[in-house]
C-alpha cells in the first residue's frame, strides 16, 4: 500500500517538475530570443523605421535591401574565402588535436606527465602579440593564408577536452583491439572515433566558430586587404570611427544588423547538421559496457 502511494506521489511530483521545467526553459529561451529577434527584424526593416531611438519588437516593414547591399559590395569574395579558411583550418586542427588527445589519454604512455606539463605551461604563460608576430614572420607566414590557420591551429582547451573524454572510454575496448594486433591509427579510427562522435562534433563546431570569428590575428597577420576574412570587413563596416579625412556613407542600424546576421549565417546553417551527433551518442553508450 505504502509503495503504491509513494509511486503516485512520485509521479505527481514528476508532473509538476515537468511543467515547471518546461516553463523555466521557455523563459530562458525568451531571454535568448528577444535580442536575436530584434537583430533579425531590424535587419529587414526599412531605413525610416530604424532611425532615432527605437527598439523594434514588432516588425514594421520588410525589405531585403540591406542584404543585397552587402552582397553587391564585393563582400561575397571574402565570404567564400572565410568559409574555405574555416573549413580547411578546422580539418587541420582536428587532424592534430584528435590523435594527440588519443595518445595523451593512454595511461601508460612514456613521459605522459612531462607532455601534459609542457602543454599546461603554454596555457598559463601567455604569448604576447609582438613576440608571436615576430616568430610567425620568421617562419615566413605573414601575409599568407597559412598565417590564419597554422599559428592558431591548436587549442589546448579543446585538446584537453578530447583527451579527458577519451580517457573515460573503458580500457578493455582498446586493449582487446591491441591484442588483436591492430595498430594505433586503426584503433583511433575504428574504435575511438565512433565512440567519441558527440565530443568530436562539439569540438569541430568550436574550432569552426573560432576560425570563423577570428579577428585580431587576421588584422595583425594579414597586410593585404584582398586576403582578409569576412569578419574583418564586416566589423569595419559596422564600427568605423572616422578620422578627419574620411566621410563614409552613413551606416544605419538595419545595415549593421544585416551584417551581424550575415556574419553568423554559415555557423547557423552548419549547426543543425552537427547537432544531430550530440544525441546519437546514446545508442553507442551500450557498446561501451
Amino acid at each position: 500500500m505504502k509503495k503504491i502511494n509513494n509511486k503516485i506521489k512520485n509521479s505527481f511530483g514528476r508532473k509538476v517538475f515537468v511543467v515547471f521545467n518546461g516553463i523555466l526553459l521557455f523563459c530562458i529561451c525568451l531571454v535568448f530570443i528577444v535580442p536575436l529577434w530584434n537583430v533579425l527584424i531590424t535587419s529587414v526593416a526599412k531605413d525610416q523605421d530604424v532611425l532615432g531611438n527605437v527598439y523594434l519588437i514588432v516588425p514594421k516593414s520588410f525589405s531585403l535591401k540591406q542584404y543585397s547591399r552587402i552582397l553587391q559590395s564585393g563582400y561575397f569574395k571574402s565570404f567564400v574565402r572565410s568559409i574555405i579558411i574555416a573549413t580547411i583550418g578546422t580539418m587541420f586542427s582536428m587532424t592534430i588535436t584528435l590523435p594527440a588527445g588519443y595518445t595523451l589519454a593512454q595511461k601508460n604512455l612514456v613521459g605522459r606527465n612531462l607532455f601534459m606539463n609542457l602543454i599546461i605551461i603554454t596555457m598559463i604563460f601567455d604569448v604576447g602579440l609582438v613576440p608571436f608576430y615576430v616568430v610567425v614572420r620568421m617562419y615566413g607566414l605573414i601575409n599568407t593564408y597559412f598565417a590564419l590557420v597554422i599559428p592558431v591551429g591548436l587549442s589546448t582547451f579543446n585538446l584537453i577536452l578530447i583527451k579527458n573524454f577519451i580517457s573515460s572510454i573503458p580500457d578493455s575496448l582498446i586493449e582487446s583491439a591491441r591484442i588483436d594486433g591492430a595498430n594505433e591509427l586503426i584503433i583511433l579510427i575504428k574504435i575511438i572515433i565512433p565512440v567519441s562522435i558527440p565530443i568530436i562534433a562539439a569540438i569541430t563546431l568550436f574550432y569552426f566558430i573560432q576560425y570563423w570569428n577570428r579577428y585580431i590575428e587576421v588584422v595583425m597577420f594579414i597586410h593585404d586587404n584582398t586576403k582578409t576574412t569576412l569578419q574583418v570587413l564586416l566589423r569595419t563596416l559596422m564600427f568605423e570611427s572616422e578620422s578627419a579625412t574620411t566621410g563614409a556613407e552613413s551606416v544605419y542600424d538595419n545595415f549593421k544588423m544585416a551584417i551581424m546576421v550575415m556574419g553568423m549565417l554559415p555557423v547557423l546553417v552548419l549547426y543543425p547538421f552537427i547537432q544531430r551527433y550530440f544525441i546519437s551518442g546514446i545508442m553507442l553508450g551500450s557498446i561501451k559496457g
Partner: peptide, 22 residues
C-alpha cells in the same frame, strides 16, 4: 606595397609593425 589595416585597429597595427621588424 600597401598595408591596409582596419581603422579601428590602426594604432595597434602600427605599434606592432614598428616593433617587430616589419
Amino acid at each position: 606595397k600597401a598595408i591596409i589595416p582596419p581603422n579601428s585597429q590602426y594604432k595597434q597595427k602600427v605599434g606592432l609593425l614598428l616593433n617587430s621588424g616589419d
